[in-house]
């Protein structure tokens, strides 16, 4: 097995979960209704919790300390998709992003619970029930907002137009990922993308939304928007008051 390829894959998975969890947590105290402040804070904790599991799997593989990776890494070293680093936008943008992400997680986890790599299978097993609940919650929201009022429909369509092409980045293959596929550790991204499109296209259509046509190809994970550096500068501000070995 190519352990550098596995490390790169684990890092990408962890970074996606972490950055999305960070964005989700920005709603805590600012959601449209008190019940959803609580619900969305839960999703944020779940995603960051999943990131911790993947970072720990990475640590077992190559010794990288999770806190050091998160709080002392420059933006050029992050391997999350741009899809998760974009600012939280309005509630429609947040909900569409979370829904598309949860759907992508579910199709991947359905495969990786049977991964040939024990740690990958174990982490997937832990994460899966939480993602199943997210999907239930966000798909219900998507339908209600898609079919609710003229305004909610308009906002949802705008969010989907902007997010759908970027979501495809979640399925862009990493360098040397084919070795992980051949070893039965991770499923092929194009297979996942097909399953993901199968699930999301019909649900979004039933929710009154139109799937945009895609013209550009997905960016690779080494490219970031200007939003990531700003996110990191704020996020790492306290940790960097002291050297990495100081306990906070």
């Amino acid at each position: 097995m190519n352990s550098a390829a596995l490390a790169a894959k684990l890092l990408a998975l962890a970074d996606d979960e972490y950055i999305l969890g960070h964005r989700d947590a920005e709603w805590t105290g600012h959601a449209p209704i008190l019940e959803e402040d609580i619900a969305f804070a839960n999703i944020a904790q779940d995603e960051i919790g999943h990131a911790v599991l993947w970072y720990n799997a990475l640590k077992d593989l190559n010794g990288d300390d999770p806190d050091r990776l998160v709080f002392f890494r420059e933006s050029s070293g992050w391997r999350n998709a741009q899809f998760v680093e974009l600012p939280k936008g309005d509630w429609a943008f947040t909900m569409v992003r979370q829904y598309l992400f949860d759907a992508a997680e579910l199709v991947r986890l359905a495969e990786t619970v049977n991964s040939a790599h024990r740690a990958v299978a174990e982490v997937s097993e832990k994460i899966r029930p939480e993602e199943m609940y997210h999907y239930r919650h966000t798909s219900n929201w998507v339908k209600r907002l898609g079919l609710g009022t003229e305004e909610s429909h308009r906002r949802m369509q705008a969010a989907l137009d902007s997010l759908w092409p970027r979501a495809l980045q979640l399925f862009a293959p990493l360098p040397n990922e084919d070795e992980l596929i051949a070893a039965g550790i991770f499923p092929a991204p194009d297979k996942l993308r097909a399953a993901w499109e199968g699930a999301t296209r019909s649900w979004l259509t039933d929710s009154g939304l139109t799937i945009p046509t895609i013209t550009a190809s997905a960016a690779d994970r080494e490219q970031h928007t200007e939003h990531l550096a700003a996110l990191l500068a704020e996020m790492q501000e306290v940790a960097r008051l002291e050297p990495p070995d100081v306990k906070w």
Binding site: P32, I33, K143, R144, L145, G148, T149, S152
Partner: peptide
């Protein structure tokens, strides 16, 4: 900011 959200879900219901 949340008003359209609360209204949309009430309308759907």
């Amino acid at each position: 900011d949340g008003q359209w959200v609360r209204e949309a879900l009430a309308a759907y219901a």
